[in-house]
Simulated assay, not measured.
Amino acid sequence: MCSNCLNAEIFKVLEKFIIDLPSKEGALIEVLHKAQGLFGYLPQEVQSFVAEKLNIPVSKVYGVVTFYSYFTIKPRGKYVINVCMGTACFVRGSGDVLEEFQKELKIKTGETTGDGKFTLGSLRCVGACGLAPVVTINDKVYGHVTVDGVNKILSEYATGEYVTTEYAE
């Protein structure tokens, strides 16, 4: 199947989602969440489509997309790694953990590996302070992560064998 054909099908799914909304007024964030879930990110083409279907200016869509850190206009890797940089995590070493991820993946925060497998980011607070420092990968939460645990975590995604243990020393 061609990529444009796939995109056409995804646009149809998004259009149906918008049509089925009880009200389009105030639905922008809900629609953007759906769109990002479908496309993986929100390129200009998707933002324009959403604006047209919701009958709002593209500038408003772009403003919301760039304001909220959840939304992205660049493709993300298969696995999105976020290191919590909230106070509890930071004082327990999340800065060092983030540096280790950068070193191991050979990318900086906000970048994606060349193979498209990993995107590295940071968050202000995950809300799991008792597990500090915390790392999330997609929907999975890792608690008590240490610099030594970074390699263990990454090896899980290389092998596909996901361990549920903590990554403390």
Results as ranks from 00 to 15, higher is better:
C125V: 05
I10R: 05
E30D: 05
Q36E: 07
I29R: 15
E25Q: 14
Y41R: 00
A8T: 09
E25M: 04
V141T: 15
K78G: 05
N7M: 00
G114R: 06
V147Y: 09
F49K: 05
K53G: 03
F39H: 04
G95E: 11
L120C: 05
D139G: 06
A168K: 14
D20Q: 13
T112R: 02
N7A: 01
N151C: 00
F118K: 04
N7F: 04
I153P: 05
N4H: 14
V83R: 13
D115L: 07
V145E: 13
E169T: 12
A35P: 06
L120M: 07
K108L: 15
I137H: 02
E156S: 08
L120K: 03
L32E: 01
N138L: 07
C125H: 07
L98G: 10
L42P: 03
A132Q: 06
R92F: 03
L105M: 09
Y167A: 05
V147G: 12
R76F: 01
T112L: 03
G77E: 03
E169V: 12
I19P: 01
S23W: 00
F118N: 01
Q47V: 04
E104K: 15
S59L: 12
K103M: 12
K24L: 08
Y70A: 03
Y70Q: 07
K78L: 14
A132W: 02
I19Y: 08
G40N: 01
F71D: 04
C125K: 04
N82G: 05
F118Q: 01
D20M: 10
T87Q: 10
F101E: 11
D115P: 02
N138F: 07
L105R: 07
G86H: 11
P57E: 14
Y70E: 08
G63P: 09
S48I: 07
A88G: 12
T136R: 10
V83K: 12
G63F: 11
L42M: 04
A8F: 07
N151S: 15
V61T: 13
G160W: 01
I56A: 10
K78T: 13
I137V: 15
L123Y: 06
Y142T: 12
G110T: 11
G143N: 08
C125W: 03
V61I: 13
V46T: 13
T146H: 09
K78Y: 03
G143D: 10
